[in-house]
Amino acid sequence: KYLVLALYDYQEKSPREVTMKKGDILTLLNSTNKDWWKVEVNGRQGFVPAAYVKYL
């Protein structure tokens, strides 16, 4: 498993997404889509914009 760092705040806009705050450390679950990565944060799984996170 990889960890990624939230570069920006992101507010979920659909039930498939998750909210994150700048500085959050997220567990990367799937990065096959170049635009949306599946992550786990605070016990929830969902998608965030790939451009908003970077590998640690």
Rank of each mutant, 00 (worst) to 15 (best):
K1I: 13
K1M: 13
K1Y: 14
Y2Q: 15
Y2C: 15
Y2T: 15
Y2H: 15
L3D: 06
L3N: 07
L3F: 14
V4L: 15
V4K: 01
L5F: 09
A6T: 04
A6S: 06
A6P: 01
L7M: 11
L7E: 05
L7Q: 06
L7Y: 05
L7F: 05
L7W: 05
Y8H: 12
D9Q: 03
D9Y: 04
D9I: 02
Y10I: 02
Y10V: 01
Q11I: 14
Q11C: 10
Q11G: 08
Q11M: 14
E12G: 15
E12I: 06
E12Q: 13
K13T: 14
K13M: 13
K13C: 10
S14V: 05
S14I: 05
P15F: 09
P15E: 12
P15L: 09
P15S: 12
R16M: 13
R16P: 05
R16I: 14
R16K: 13
E17G: 12
E17L: 06
E17K: 05
E17V: 05
E17D: 06
E17T: 08
V18C: 08
T19V: 03
T19L: 03
T19Y: 04
T19W: 04
M20W: 02
M20Y: 02
K21V: 09
K21F: 10
K22A: 13
G23K: 02
G23T: 02
G23I: 01
I25L: 09
I25H: 05
I25V: 12
I25N: 03
I25W: 05
I25E: 04
L26D: 00
L26E: 00
L26Y: 09
L28C: 07
L29S: 03
L29E: 03
L29C: 07
L29K: 05
L29A: 03
N30I: 08
N30C: 11
S31Q: 10
T32S: 15
N33L: 10
N33D: 15
N33F: 07
K34Y: 08
D35A: 11
W36T: 02
W36I: 03
W37A: 06
W37T: 04
W37I: 09
W37C: 06
K38V: 13
K38C: 13
K38A: 11
K38G: 06
K38N: 07
K38E: 14
V39D: 00
V39L: 03
V39P: 00
V39K: 00
V41D: 03
V41T: 12
N42V: 05
N42K: 11
G43T: 06
G43V: 02
G43R: 05
G43K: 06
Q45K: 11
Q45E: 12
Q45R: 12
Q45M: 11
Q45I: 14
Q45Y: 08
Q45T: 14
G46D: 00
G46T: 02
G46M: 04
G46K: 02
F47A: 03
F47S: 03
F47L: 08
F47P: 00
V48G: 00
V48Y: 01
P49Y: 02
P49Q: 02
P49S: 02
P49V: 03
A50R: 12
A50T: 06
A51Q: 13
A51W: 08
A51D: 12
Y52W: 06
Y52H: 08
Y52C: 09
Y52L: 15
V53D: 00
K54M: 15
K54G: 14
Y55M: 15
Y55Q: 14
L56R: 04
L56M: 11
